[in-house]
Each structure stands twice: as C-alpha cells, then as structure tokens.
C-alpha cells in the first residue's frame, strides 16, 4: 500500500513538474496546482493510522485527525496561493499581451540590455604604462597664470 501511495504522489508530482516546464503560463499554474495536490495527498498518506472518521461517538480506531487538520490547512493555503497566481497571470497577460513564457524572457532580456546601456560598462585598466601619470592634473601654465590674475 505504501508503494501505491508513494507512486500516486510521485505521478502527480511528476505531472506537475512536467507542466511547469511548459512555456504556457496557464499550464505552468496547473502544474503548480498538481504539485500542491501531490503534497496534500502525501500529508494524508503520512497518517499514523487509518480507520474511521474521528468524530464522536468513537468506537473503533479512528484515522489520524492531526494529518487531516494539516491537510486542510495546506489545501487552503495552496488554494489561496494558486488564486493569487492566476490573478498575477492575468496581469502578466495584460502587460505583455501574451501568456507565453518565451515572450516574457525576451522582454526580460530587452530590459537587461536597456539596463546595461544605462549603467555603463565596468572599466578595467588595460594600459599598464604609468610613465605619464601625475602629469595631467595641473592643466597648464597659462591656466595657472589665469588663476593668479584673478
């Protein structure tokens, strides 16, 4: 049984991961939801024991109520996050008129290029000849003279 449960978790996880590798934003989100499902199933599977519903009157051995509470919390949290991601996907679509990750990557690179030109290159020193250093700071006699006459 543990093997079957583990396999189910693994298949859901793998399907989710596969979808997360897609270019389509929507599929990506579906992948995330699937991985969330896999995690939730695993929490339930991690139950210390399985039996009747833990509702009074209790006669037989009940199922582990703690994992149930944990699963509930986890389900709700992953739902909230998924809903948020959906809304974000909508805004991404509004911003790019696309749900294709490739276009987003393109936009990111364009942005990086813009940044690069804005921020300038690092300037590594290439000229090792230092024989004229120390000469250039005072500009010239005429200039110095001008300073005097003022």
């Amino acid at each position: 049984m543990t093997l079957i449960l583990s396999l189910a978790v693994a298949i859901l996880f793998a399907s989710g991961a596969y979808l997360m590798l897609k270019h389509d934003l929507v599929r990506l989100i579906v992948g995330m939801v699937l991985i969330g499902n896999a995690a939730n199933l695993f929490i339930m599977a991690a139950a210390l024991r399985i039996g009747d519903a833990p509702v009074y009157p209790i006669e037989d051995e009940t199922s582990d109520p703690l994992v149930q509470a944990m699963t509930l919390t986890a389900i709700v949290i992953s739902f909230a996050v998924s809903a948020l991601v959906l809304a974000l996907a909508y805004r991404v679509y509004i911003a790019h008129a696309s749900v294709d990750m490739r276009e987003l990557s393109l936009a990111e690179e364009e942005q990086a290029d813009i940044d690069d030109t804005l921020d300038g290159e690092p300037e590594p020193m290439l000229d090792v000849d230092d024989s004229s250093i120390g000469e250039s700071s005072p500009v010239g006699a005429a200039d110095a003279g001008e300073a005097k006459t003022r």
Binding site: M20, I35, G36, A39, I43, A45, A46, A47, V67, L88
Partner: peptide, 27 residues
C-alpha cells in the same frame, strides 16, 4: 509582474518540498 511571477513559481516549488518534508517528519 514578470519578477513576481518568476518569484512565485520558484518559491512555491520550494514551499511544496518543505511541506512534504514536514509531513514526512511527522510520519
């Protein structure tokens, strides 16, 4: 929006791995 999307996707993956490990610890 792009940054936020990327941030969510990657970190959600991390969160799920963490959740799985917590359940395993409990078990």
């Amino acid at each position: 929006f792009r940054a936020a999307f990327l941030f969510i996707v990657v970190n959600l993956l991390g969160s799920m791995l963490f959740l799985i490990s917590i359940a395993a610890i409990y078990h």
